[in-house]
């Protein structure tokens, strides 16, 4: 069975950019969420292999999602994709268990490098 990936971003453009930038070698089913609460609902109801997570979102932000994942001991890879480049923010999400931090704008090269490193492709 193929892996399922969750793309969580409040921006439609960002979600579409993300889908389009995923490397061709990444064989996964894609589901999407537009805020943190939606993302948690998806994570609790189905098996997700990897989450591409934006940080600044309404309802529940990316940090909140990471905290919930940690608290509920969910087994999922999280790759944060954000325009926020503050070093403190990067440290905070890595401490919360994120696998990698990708600066927007995303492109296939950046994604491939990270995903290869963690054996996702």
């Amino acid at each position: 069975m193929a892996l399922t990936a969750l793309i969580c971003d409040d921006s439609l453009l960002a979600r579409n950019q993300m889908k389009k930038s995923l490397p061709g070698a990444f064989d996964a089913e894609i589901v999407t969420a537009t805020n943190g609460l939606e993302a948690l609902n998806v994570l609790r109801s189905q098996e997700i292999g990897v989450v591409f997570l934006d940080l600044t979102m309404p309802e529940l932000d990316g940090v909140g999602v990471l905290e919930a994942i940690k608290a509920e001991k969910m087994d999922v890879f999280v790759i944060v994709v954000s325009a926020d480049i503050q070093p403190e923010m990067q440290k905070r999400v890595m401490d919360l268990g994120a696998l990698a931090f990708i600066h927007k704008p995303v492109n296939t090269d950046k994604l491939s490098a990270v995903m290869r490193q963690y054996g996702l492709i």
Binding site: S11, L12, L13, S82, A83, I85, H103, K104, P105
Partner: peptide, 12 residues
């Protein structure tokens, strides 16, 4: 949405 996202990225 598109403009907001592009501006966010430009700010970053």
């Amino acid at each position: 949405d598109c403009l907001q996202e592009l501006i966010n990225v430009a700010m970053g």
